[in-house]
Design a protein around this nucleic acid. Structure first.
Lengths: 341, 341
DNA sequence: GACGTTCGTCGAAGCGCTTCGACCTGGTCG
DNA sequence: CGACCAGGTCGAAGCGCTTCGACGAACGTC
């Protein structure tokens, strides 16, 4: 007595009057099959509602058609972007006929090792990589190919994708310099993010500072803690010490709203008195009032690229080590020329 | 020549000087094995770094040790909660020695069917269930067990877990009534959420209205669109038409911040002039200023419960159809007695 | 018209694991 | 003291799939 669920390739073969191997070849396209046989098989597949058994397939073909998406358990401020990433990864992976196994970092290296060694996944996508990431060395001697989203300090031998944050910092300054601003502040991620050594924060700051220098703009940079009250306090302090600042670059999704809301209460209108540029996802930027000029983190595109790269590695195609997506600046209503002195 | 990666159970057996089946029994504990043999096998497992091949295991045992987590692709504003859920699901699943396959709804029912039929997962966890959810009927005639997070209109034959939103609505009103408020407004999710028939919004409103009635409190309810500007407009309009409202219940994470920020600019101090209770995740509530009295959505606990239920169903243990987690109200700084008339 | 070629199909051999029945011990019991 | 039993262990038979080599048949080619 057969169990009622799980239609096997043998069932399809019988129904179509061919050999099991023929069904397999029809489905994989790895050998020529006549038009007529193919159609007969496909018809049987459809009428029986056949779906290949993933385990059996993985066992025989040594490919699971699954990739791992490794997220840090401690998702800090940037939850929405991470989510957007994750969804985009799933969608992209599906377009390559792969599924996504969600893994958290809290099992540590052992978790990664388990996933890889059990042949559960063919490749690994690592998100939110930190400058000095404990998972990274492991990745190097794992047999499975991997792609990182973000850059560790030492990226040799690894494939990494990210927004070009260095360039993003530059772009913000250039926009503001062009408008005539001469003194600009960078309000960054919470201090913890810098301390943790997360790459993007440092790279943005470097680009920011470098471009400012080049354009004769003087700068102030400071991290911005979480929480509306803290943001307010930070702003007060900043404007108190540096009253001549006429533009802010904010790289902290959670802070963008509060910053825009607080400035008017401090007697600074946006953009008449002070301009604001944000580095944050588009959905955020479009929801503020006034709508904020921003350099979006193109989560979907980064995800797509990362998956595409991983697929190429699975095929053993050569891939570039570093892929930097160029930032685009979208001008909205929060930036204007500085007020006359 | 053997491929260097992938140590098999045969390797372990040889190394330990026992039969393959013995290794299997040591690992699964399904038959008595002498202490001495067990230790010898476990030692070999460790020194060789053996991890069972997931596909082979799934094929032979008919259990993949993987559950599917199905997320809606279109995640609205409540991204952070969803994320929190997802992470908690992974953690819980791991504690049962299961992994999590991330699936989006955008493939539609076909996607679910594929996942289930390919024996890729043993069970399914469906998030963000809507009152009239197209995926739900399918679930009923799938062979795999499933658990829903949220309630569809017709939940017969299904296992559902959620916060008791009806009770949450009541709890908010009761708190406010006790403080002496007589006229209370419910500011809900964006209109689209109601139209979509998402259960929690309706259930909260029902509980809210019912409790208000019972306590002799009159109510106004209205959805709240996304965006700071829209929130402001909505508040202006509300206070204009109903100037006697002294308390607000906000069920819209994205709106809590803006509401609290906007009220003072409309000449209403919180909590002296108007009290605010939010139904939102704790991290949100703790970040507002003033810190808002709230009924948190216990994402982690819901996730844990859902996974636990699914595991019981996998073991074919009987489980309750509906699991409602009781809300707790955390009093913070945004609620007080209403001002004298 | 005998000989390659290609094209399409089949059968069988695994992939690495679980699990079932069988088979050995040594005790225990009547 | 032989029969019985429980505790340990083994060998072999699959699980459902892919893939390799083999094999007919239909087609030129000299």
């Amino acid at each position: 007595m057969k169990s009622p669920d799980q239609i096997t390739i043998a069932d399809v073969a019988r129904h179509a009057g061919v050999a099991g191997s023929t069904v397999s070849y029809v489905l994989s396209g790895k050998r020529a099959i006549s038009e007529v046989t193919r159609n007969r098989v496909l018809a049987s597949v459809r009428t029986l509602g056949y779906h290949p058994h993933a385990g059996a397939r993985a066992l025989a073909s040594r490919r699971a058609n699954v990739i791992a998406l490794v997220l840090p358990l401690r998702v800090g401020m940037q939850v929405p972007v991470v989510m957007q990433f994750a969804m985009a990864v799933v969608t992209s992976a599906r377009s390559f006929d792969h599924d996504v196994l969600l893994v958290t970092s809290d099992e540590g290296p052992a978790g990664l090792r388990r996933i890889a060694a059990s042949a559960m996944v063919d490749g690994i996508l690592l998100m939110d990589v930190e400058l000095d990431d404990s998972r990274v060395p492991l990745l190097r001697d794992l047999t499975r190919p991997s792609v990182l989203i973000g850059f560790p300090a030492d990226a040799t031998g690894l494939t990494c994708v990210d927004l070009d944050f260095h360039r993003a910092g530059q772009v913000c300054v250039e926009h503001l310099a062009q408008l005539g601003h001469r003194r600009v502040a960078l309000l960054g991620a919470p201090p913890a993010v810098y301390d943790r050594g997360t790459g993007f924060a440092h790279r943005t700051r470097a680009g920011f500072t470098e471009a400012a220098h080049r354009h004769g703009v003087t700068t102030v940079t400071r991290p911005l803690p979480e929480g509306t009250a803290a943001v307010r306090q930070g702003l007060l302090d900043l404007l108190d010490r540096h009253p001549d600042v006429t533009a802010l670059v904010v790289q902290n999704e959670a802070a963008v709203g509060p910053v825009l809301a607080t400035l008017p209460t401090l007697g600074r209108r946006v953009p008449q008195d002070v301009s604001v540029v944000a580095i944050c996802p588009d959905p955020f930027a479009e929801q503020t009032s006034p709508m904020v000029t921003s350099v979006p983190v193109p989560a979907e595109e980064v995800a797509r690229q990362a998956v595409a790269l991983l697929m190429r590695k699975l095929r053993e195609d050569p891939v570039p080590d570093a892929t930097l997506l160029s930032p685009r600046l979208t001008v909205r209503d929060s930036t204007a020329a500085p007020p006359p002195p």
